[in-house]
Amino acid sequence: MFRRYKAFMKTGILNIFAYKFNIFSWLLVVASSLLCLFFLWAAVFNNSPVDIINGFTFKEIISYTIIVNIFGFTMGGGETTDVITDEIQNGQIAMSLIKPISYRLRFVFSTLGGLLASDLIVGFPLLIVSTILLTFNGFMTIESPANFIIMLIFFLVAQVIAKMLFDVIDYIFGLISFYTMASFGLNQIKEVVTNFLSGMLIPIAFFPEWMANIINYLPFVGMAQNPALIYLGKMSVSEALISIGMQILWLIILETFAHFFYLKAIKIVTIQGG
């Protein structure tokens, strides 16, 4: 059944390798922004009377920022919103719809292909290097190797679900263009929302309490913050399991919503041109 989609996974992988330059430019951007964040957090903690702010020590917040940013890159491998808005605008969607494949699954596979490829060539090497550096410099402590391995497995699972969450949100934003017929900065809105609510910029604990209480139940925390907290050992086993459970629940909810949204949107779709 999945044979039909193999090609899309391959295309996703090839895309990542085709745009090698993107990887280098991203590394440059992320390195400089990490440097800024380092000094920013240093200033915050130096001027604070306490050593722990919102449950994070200086070392922990630096580790968190690094791990979450490695995520940020691997998320860049998906381009579902762009592809859908493009197809809608130039009418190329007709060519997608005449093929005997599910419009949704095609994106799931190409995104997973792209994200796994970027994990393999950038994500994991960076994760390993930064873990070694952070541990060596005392920023990260691995108390028991057994616990670390359990958390690593949880993290890998959470990481894959995070990507699927990321793609379904990407897809839903793409479907909006069925109605607007234009991207209208859909991508920018999506990026701001996900960066802000996923804890990519700062951990959700730094938000006002009432806001954090809400955000922690939204799907976005499952895309960056929670997997990072699992990796850093900031969650207990039961907390990690609950977090993964929440991710799966949201994935089911969002995919179901996306499915019905698609069925509704496809009815009004007007194929542009010719």
């Binding site: 193999k6 295309t11 009418g91 190329q92 093929k99 005997p100 010719g274």
Partner: peptide, 25 residues
């Protein structure tokens, strides 16, 4: 559709056919 193509723009023609071979099983 005379005005549109169902082939993949950037890859070799034969590769497009191989993709279609998979899609249509």
């Amino acid at each position: 559709f005379g005005q549109k193509t169902q082939l993949w723009w950037d890859i070799q023609l034969i590769e497009s056919y191989k993709v279609l071979k998979e899609i249509y099983e």
